[in-house]
Design a binder for these strands. Structure first.
Lengths: 341, 341
DNA sequence: AAAGTGTATCAAAGCGCTTTGGAATGCGGT
DNA sequence: ACCGCATTCCAAAGCGCTTTGATACACTTT
């Protein structure tokens, strides 16, 4: 069933049917009602591609997932982010497209996406320091919003980020206030902007307290459970092990906890753990009392909000750029306690 | 840059340029080379929608994610599945589209997807017993493949599944062989086909051993960490607690382990855990020796294979349906041990 | 009665591509 | 010199929609 058939069926022109369905005022309400009903009974929906060709828009948002060097890692927050974004897209009649791409042909992918007219805009994930995707997208004229920020970029662009620096500064202060002096910092890859900011926050709080940083207690890497486990294990086996762990992801924190368990150490009693918690739906941080003391911010909510920002931007490309900074909520769970003497 | 401009630039007709780029034999190799090069330098890619309109195909695959009643859960395996599928799609020039939908307007969504011509085919996720999506999709003529199976369906359709019944039967037998008699079974929602099969496997092995099943040791639910933790906790606090846990997901298993840790019990020594492991990239089951004794099968590989099956089906809709059954690999880790007397 | 004003509808062009059904060109064979 | 026969290229139709610019008609208004 297409427009032509439907309009013939109704004894109307394609113009009128199209306008009736798209809510134009030139159509009488009586006619509109008739058209809408017929469309429903005959299960008519306008062909996406024809509509897109005529309007010049795809009503589709792209998400380009860059596969990192290891080539295998899937960001665990991805599902929740997409779930949040998906709600917004659905509510606004947008489709959501995903593209996987190796790091080397990133630029090519973005250019092709634009040339093909496949998407009206896209979300930039996992921004790096001075990320070259921002000038690229600006140059080729593809609307975008950034999940996070790109320090060093002089461009004006829209982003939504968590105040990572403050969150990790506060978290470190909290551990210091409990008497911890040797604090391990299990961070993500410091090619990523958020990881850099987190380190800055941590470093600032440690230095502020007049303590010196031990490089042996700071690691960076892919934020998997195994990564948390192996690094925490190594540190716990040091001659002078840390008494507290500051962890960049609850998934790593699970690994850190396992390292403690392996050694018969109890989190909160024998060693403390503070983690960042993205509020993943399948890895909730306890129901009544939080399991981990954590800085939390819902990545799902971030997805929903960023999607709306992008849609607004697409519909009004000349509008001002929006920058949103969310503060993480600090919750005290059972994984932290005073330093034992 | 569009076809018309490019062809004018080259002094050729649109036909010739189109044919040159699409590999038709009617074009001399010299001309083709010239065209391809010009397309590259001018960054030309055919407009997706125009191409789709002309050919009648979208070269796009749909993934409809049904949001369950709780409305909030995101399947943790989703990211890895999509990563696997995405590789295949990219290699074959297909785009990948996601749609989120509430359970009540599932049918409507599929119909609209077809009517709009938005996708050439789709992957059915999380099939239920006698799933009504299969006859629906067959009726509306949208090619599909199923990740899992739908018991009770009399249709002929393509699927890829893990032999869940055998995996859980074998796992249960393994626990029995270690002397465990009270085995808890932490399962997923038994509206889902795979969960039903897993229960069947477990039940069969228990009955085969001449033991009676204790309904108090069998739970079903959303497979989150918290779900594993709360149910394992409740069972461990029973007068006659289980000595082993059979768990449907490594995420739940992490929760079960936490419940043991809470009580100072050590997995493998004080209680055993066997889990199904989807080989999620961020939640690897140890490097050298597995942490959990597990039945493992890569959901990422499943995504890649199913994507190929679907593409084959789209390109040859009259071809035979393919049914693939994978056996899970059983690995013994540190989470299981003989029953202490 | 003529002119003006909305209102409700329509025919046709155009979006950028593929593809059908020719047409022009070059070349060997008679 | 003429006739096939490839080879190489092209003009134009068509995919299903939106949208421009008109048209037909029923009312006021002067």
């Amino acid at each position: 069933m297409n427009l032509k058939e439907l309009s013939q069926l109704l004894g109307l022109s394609q113009t009128t049917v199209s306008r009736a369905l798209n809510g134009y005022p030139e159509v009488s309400e009586a006619t509109r009602a008739r058209v809408v009903k017929a469309a429903q009974t005959h299960n008519y929906s306008p062909n996406t591609r024809a509509q897109g060709l005529a309007t010049g828009h795809s009503r589709c948002i792209g998400h380009v997932i860059s596969v990192n060097d290891s080539g295998e890692m899937v960001n665990p927050i991805f599902g929740d982010f997409m779930a949040g974004a998906g709600e917004t897209y659905a509510a606004n009649g947008y489709d959501m497209m995903m593209t996987r791409v190796g790091a080397q042909d990133e630029a090519e992918t973005y250019r092709t996406l634009k040339a093909r007219g496949a998407v009206d805009g896209l979300v930039v994930h996992a921004p790096r320091n001075n990320d070259d995707r921002l000038p690229l997208l600006t140059e080729i004229g593809l609307p975008f919003v950034v999940h996070g920020r790109s320090t060093g970029s002089t461009l004006d662009y829209s982003w939504l980020d968590v105040n990572n620096r403050r969150a990790f500064e506060d978290a470190t202060r909290y551990l210091l206030s409990l008497g911890h002096q040797r604090i391990a910092f299990i961070n993500g890859h410091e090619t990523l902007d958020f990881a850099i900011r987190r380190r800055e926050g941590h470093v600032r709080a440690v230095q502020e307290a007049g303590l010196t940083l031990d490089p042996a207690l700071m690691t960076t890497g892919e934020m998997t459970e195994e990564y948390g486990h192996s690094n925490a294990s190594a540190m716990l086996d040091m001659a002078d092990p840390p008494s507290a762990f500051l962890v960049s992801s609850i998934i790593c924190a699970v690994g850190v906890r396992r390292a403690l368990d392996d050694r018969g150490l109890k989190p909160g009693r024998d060693a403390s753990i503070v983690t960042f918690d993205d509020c993943l739906s399948y890895l909730g941080n306890g129901t009544a009392t939080p399991v981990f003391t954590a800085m939390q911010s819902s990545v799902r909510a971030a997805g929903a909000t960023l999607a709306q920002m992008l849609i607004d931007r697409i519909q009004n490309p000349r509008g001002p750029h929006i920058q949103t900074l969310w503060e993480a909520e600090f919750v005290v769970g059972t994984s932290t306690g005073h330093l034992k003497d």
